[in-house]
Amino acid sequence: MMLKIENLHAGIDGREILKGIDLEVNAGEVHAIMGPNGSGKSTMSNVLAGHPAYRVTGGSVTFKGRDLLSMNAEERSHEGLFMSFQYPVEIPGVSMTNFMRTAINEKRKALGENPLPPADFLKLVKAKRDLVKLDAKFMNRSVNEGFSGGEKKRNEIFQMAMLEPSLSILDETDSGLDIDALRIVADGVNRLRSAETSVIVITHYQRLLDYIKPDVVHVLYQGRIIKTAGPELALELEERGYDWVIREFEGSVG
């Protein structure tokens, strides 16, 4: 099992947002988590990635057999968890090359490996840039600074490719993307898929799921997963909206 979330409660600033999440993701699977605004989608990805501002108040998360919640953000990353940010952060003065080299080598250090020789690093960069059609010039620029919306998202997938995570959480990766950029990003994600890696796609719209085909679709509402079904659910949500699922759920809990 890649990821097992049991009765997860979490929030921020004393406000509980996740109110008992249960989720299981197997290796090789793609899960989509959909839901209306304010349902807790971003909180969930931030909590899984270990954002220090969020507090876990109950439940457990097991990642590849280990207790995820006992690790800090960088340890989770070293263990193979990656989150693509909805709003990638600009870091003036830190070049992409420096940033990426540090990230790669810190991971290797944590795994007890030697730093990647510079020539190998450059080769790796070249290969992974090609995957998302990211121009070489970006490597000398400050992280995300002055990147367009599409370039920022491609940069996220480039970093994902560089770090070769076992679990990738794509947080609203489709927001602010035109159709061409969306294709490039989705294509990159698809080419990184394997039987050993899993992806959680968090999205408000069905659009991205046309390109990244999920195995399982969940609906998140008021901090709980209220419905889980196959890929056909995404299409149905696109057509009919969320109201019917919510009504169905509220009917069932009375």
Binding site: A49, G50, H51, P52, A53, N72, A73, E74, R76, S77, H78, F82, M83, F85, P88, V89, E90, I91, P92, G93, V94, N98, F99, T102, A103, I104, E106, K107, A110, S142, Q159, L163
Partner: peptide, 27 residues
């Protein structure tokens, strides 16, 4: 220091101390 940048860097595996260092140096 920019907390958002800190988390972004840590998510990519750069330890907190190192991330602080890099941000100060960039500054």
């Amino acid at each position: 220091l920019d907390e958002r940048a800190m988390f972004y860097m840590r998510q990519r595996g750069i330890p907190e101390q190192e991330a602080r260092m890099m941000l100060m140096q960039a500054f």
